[in-house]
Simulated assay, not measured.
Amino acid sequence: MATNKELLNSSKAPEPVGLYPHARRVGNLLFLSGVGPRERGTKKIPGVELDEQGNILSYDIEAQCRAVFQNVRYILEDAGSGWDSLVDVTVFLTNMKDDFATYNRLYAEYFQDNQPCRTTVEVSRLPTPIAIELKCIAMID
């Protein structure tokens, strides 16, 4: 990390779907771009069933939550940070009514020891057929 403003990409997290890095370091802060549950090297989304036109037929919010938390962890670790260094998490859900209870239960499981600030909002859709995306800020040494 030679510069004060450095773009970082993980070798384990799914590739970005646009022209942006996985993360950017500014000083001792690491800003993550929106992270979804996709698997690296594929368009596969854990727990999602799509029709031939790419519309969502069904999805498993628990599988997506676990996958997105893992992808965040990959980015943090590849950037030299870690899960316990998260200080702020913004969560975008496409179905707050049906998915919030499961998401909130899993969030409590994953963030039991580290409790960053959190904002959760419902959005009508995300850029790919996913039900959850996280935007995070972490400390980095």
Rank of each mutant, 00 (worst) to 15 (best):
28 N>T: 07
29 L>C: 06
29 L>Y: 15
30 L>C: 07
31 F>K: 01
31 F>R: 00
31 F>H: 06
31 F>Y: 05
32 L>F: 04
32 L>G: 01
32 L>S: 02
32 L>H: 04
33 S>M: 01
33 S>L: 09
34 G>P: 10
36 G>Q: 08
37 P>N: 03
38 R>K: 12
39 E>L: 12
39 E>Q: 11
39 E>I: 09
41 G>L: 08
41 G>K: 00
41 G>C: 09
42 T>P: 12
42 T>I: 13
44 K>L: 09
44 K>N: 10
44 K>P: 05
45 I>G: 08
46 P>C: 02
46 P>Q: 04
47 G>M: 12
48 V>W: 06
48 V>R: 03
49 E>A: 03
49 E>N: 08
49 E>L: 13
49 E>R: 02
51 D>N: 12
52 E>A: 15
52 E>Q: 15
52 E>N: 15
53 Q>V: 14
55 N>H: 09
55 N>L: 09
56 I>V: 14
57 L>F: 06
57 L>V: 15
57 L>P: 14
58 S>C: 12
58 S>W: 06
58 S>V: 07
61 I>A: 07
61 I>F: 05
61 I>C: 08
61 I>E: 03
61 I>Q: 06
61 I>K: 01
65 C>A: 12
66 R>Y: 11
67 A>E: 08
69 F>D: 06
69 F>G: 11
69 F>A: 03
70 Q>F: 07
70 Q>C: 12
71 N>F: 09
72 V>F: 12
73 R>C: 13
73 R>F: 12
74 Y>F: 13
75 I>H: 08
76 L>W: 15
76 L>H: 14
76 L>N: 05
78 D>I: 12
79 A>C: 14
79 A>G: 08
79 A>F: 15
81 S>L: 07
83 W>E: 14
83 W>M: 13
83 W>Q: 14
84 D>V: 10
85 S>Q: 13
85 S>N: 14
89 V>C: 04
89 V>M: 08
89 V>A: 05
89 V>K: 02
90 T>P: 10
90 T>M: 01
92 F>E: 12
93 L>W: 10
93 L>P: 05
93 L>A: 03
93 L>C: 09
93 L>I: 10
94 T>F: 03
94 T>D: 14
94 T>Y: 05
95 N>C: 13
95 N>G: 11
96 M>W: 07
96 M>Q: 11
97 K>P: 15
97 K>N: 15
98 D>E: 15
98 D>V: 10
99 D>I: 14
99 D>K: 15
99 D>V: 15
100 F>W: 13
100 F>V: 12
102 T>S: 10
103 Y>S: 10
103 Y>R: 00
104 N>A: 09
104 N>Y: 00
104 N>T: 00
108 A>Q: 05
108 A>R: 08
108 A>F: 06
109 E>G: 10
109 E>C: 07
111 F>I: 01
111 F>D: 02
112 Q>K: 13
113 D>A: 04
113 D>Y: 07
113 D>Q: 01
114 N>L: 05
116 P>I: 00
116 P>C: 02
117 C>A: 05
119 T>L: 09
119 T>M: 14
120 T>W: 01
121 V>R: 10
122 E>A: 04
122 E>H: 06
122 E>F: 07
123 V>K: 06
124 S>A: 00
126 L>R: 05
129 P>R: 02
129 P>G: 00
130 I>E: 08
130 I>V: 04
130 I>Y: 00
